[in-house]
């Protein structure tokens, strides 16, 4: 193998609004950089082939599988993880909706669902329940049975729309 293969690359990553420099092998996935180099362990990893969605984060606002992206591909893009949702100990509206609707039990899948929903609702604030179900089909949850997750996302979207109406009234 020639040198390029063993060389580490110096990457500058924008994660949750701050710049981070990491020196990693090119094969390091975004998921592993987040967890191991930046110690943002809210992003979970399970299947590592794009099927379960536990590793979902936002890249330039869109939900992506961070296990199917090399960190090098994320340079110059804005990455958001579940750590960006709340403020300190204060949960975001979406996270509160998940708790209120019992949309988690063991919680392993929750960061993935939260980031999926955060990205999805930003693009589709008026999404119908059917569309939410379709979006949620992307991620696996072994505990809840999904109905409560759909309830939580639907409720959060409705509250955001109501708040928007009050603001513009």
């Amino acid at each position: 193998m020639d040198d390029a293969v063993n060389d580490k690359v110096l990457l500058s990553l924008d994660v949750n609004g701050s710049e981070h420099e990491v020196l990693v092998e090119p094969r390091r996935t975004l998921a592993d950089v987040l967890r191991h180099d930046l110690e943002l362990t809210g992003t979970h990893i399970a299947c590592e082939h794009g099927v379960c969605g536990a590793c979902t984060v936002l890249v330039d606002g869109a939900p992506v599988r961070s296990c199917l992206m090399f960190a090098a591909q994320a340079e110059g893009r804005g990455v958001r993880t579940v750590e960006s949702l709340g403020r300190g100990d204060e949960l975001s509206d979406l996270q509160r909706a998940f708790t209120e609707h019992h949309a988690l039990q063991c919680g392993f899948c929750t960061p993935g669902f939260l980031m999926l929903a955060e990205g999805f609702l930003a693009a589709r604030p008026d999404a119908s329940r059917a569309e939410i179900r379709e979006a949620v089909s992307s991620n696996l949850c072994r505990c809840t049975g999904y109905q409560t997750i759909v309830d939580a996302i639907e409720d959060c979207a409705a509250r955001r729309r109501a708040a928007e109406r009050t603001r513009s009234a």
């Binding site: 193998m1 390029a4 293969v5 090119p26 094969r27 996935t29 590592e48 082939h49 794009g50 599988r65 296990c67 199917l68 992206m69 090399f70 090098a72 591909q73």
Partner: peptide
Amino acid sequence: FLAGGQSLIPMMNFRLARPAHLVDIA
């Protein structure tokens, strides 16, 4: 070539593909 990586990276994670070099076209 590496485009979206949604076929190539799963294959690499399964070690079904072992390219020595990737040229990112994104």
